[in-house]
Write a protein that binds this DNA or RNA. Structure first.
Lengths: 213, 213
DNA sequence: AAATACATACATACTAGTTGGTTTGTCAAG
DNA sequence: CTTGACAAACCAACTAGTATGTATGTATTT
């Protein structure tokens, strides 16, 4: 009787669905055009909603942006990085796998628009402290799980004991974002793959057999 | 008699100075707020010019953006990376030096606003093909000089023969941009330094003595 | 169980401010 | 005296945000 399947049941009221539809659309608009380039009007036409609905659920454009970070981007990072690494019994291998399979998820979007998290960091961190804090919090989540994966590699004897996991984790994050960003200027999936491959090479250089110091 | 010292001589006419003043101011505004966030009005107030002057020298906002890439950002990349690497008789060492001394140039700006080139790549590449092409051209310049430095390292016997200089150069660029971008979310110069240090570590892993394959 | 009261979830219409861009005029230089 | 290099005033489009109205759901009272 009730159509919870359809995205936006016009006749019925479903605040949860409505809010989620706004968030999803806002995310894609921000992903494509940046936060400053996002137009509320586009969200309304794409969702079929009106200003009243939007401003009922969100105080203003800024807080809508905050909500996109917390409710869309953070869960995204958690599902791609945090959860797989936590669930794995060989986090180092999982880390390699995640990096390697990254371009397979949504190749077109990844090449064209890059990383939603990094995009917002680069655009909004210097402009809005509220953005910066929330984005930094997500980065910290990612950093912690990556660091833990490396520490597991050290404990399992896969990685050299003298590895600074804190710094190495940061470098891996930087490298991943750098690779994705680099592919954007050339719009080349091939370039992204080869660039990510270098990260694997770097990780390999941290293994015991690769060192003879 | 003529005051070429002052930025903008009001009474006299100096189209070259005027154009440069617009470009310089536009660059800083783009650097801080992004291209979409840049307001022509701000450029006018900061330069003391009017709409007439701006639209005399530039057709529209878009071509002003293009000119900033070609006349400001490209020379910047050339002076920081290309020229030092070309002039050096030990390009690999010079590469290390450039990376290491990067945070010393304009630390505050670098942490707060990141890399002007990468900022524009991330923001505008997906939105405007004209931007993408021009930005990709600058990236290619940077890539060529970095690749040449690595090849010099191979020829001098500092780097392993089996190194893929093309791919490694791309990875270094990605890593550099990634490190700068990472520092932005935390606004930490310290983090930038340690992150860049990891690039040196990676370069070290390419040297002959570090490999035992 | 029905009526009342109130809150939630939107829709419609409008506004104030912004912003890129244009038109026209003017002054200096070659 | 013609062209280049600006200045001043203006315009049309856009855009976030608001004011107001309305339909629907829900709790309370009787």
């Amino acid at each position: 009787m009730n159509n919870t399947q359809s995205k936006l049941p016009r006749t019925e009221r479903n605040p949860e669905l409505t809010r989620q539809a706004i968030l999803d659309t806002a995310f894609m608009e921000i992903f494509r055009n940046g936060f400053q380039g996002m137009r509320l009007e586009n969200i309304l036409t794409e969702t079929g909603l009106t200003k009243g609905a939007l401003y009922h659920h969100f105080k203003n454009k800024q807080t809508l942006g905050y909500a996109v970070i917390e409710d869309i981007i953070q869960p995204m990072i958690e599902s791609i990085w945090v959860k797989p690494l936590e669930a794995s019994n060989n986090p180092l291998d999982t880390l390699q796998t995640v990096i390697k399979t990254l371009p397979d998820m949504k190749p077109d979007e990844l090449i064209q628009f890059g990383c939603p998290l990094n995009n917002l960091v680069q655009e909004m961190s210097p402009l809005d402290e509220g953005f910066r804090k929330r984005l930094d919090a997500v980065m910290s989540l990612w950093h912690e799980s990556t660091k833990a994966a490396l520490q597991a590699g050290v404990q399992s004897g896969q990685i050299r004991q003298d590895t600074n996991c804190e710094e190495t984790a940061m470098f891996i994050m930087a490298a991943v974002e750098g690779c994705i960003g680099l592919a954007k200027s050339s719009q080349s999936l091939e370039r992204l793959r080869t660039c990510l491959k270098s990260i694997s090479g770097y990780l390999a250089s941290l293994t015991i057999d690769a060192s003879n110091r």
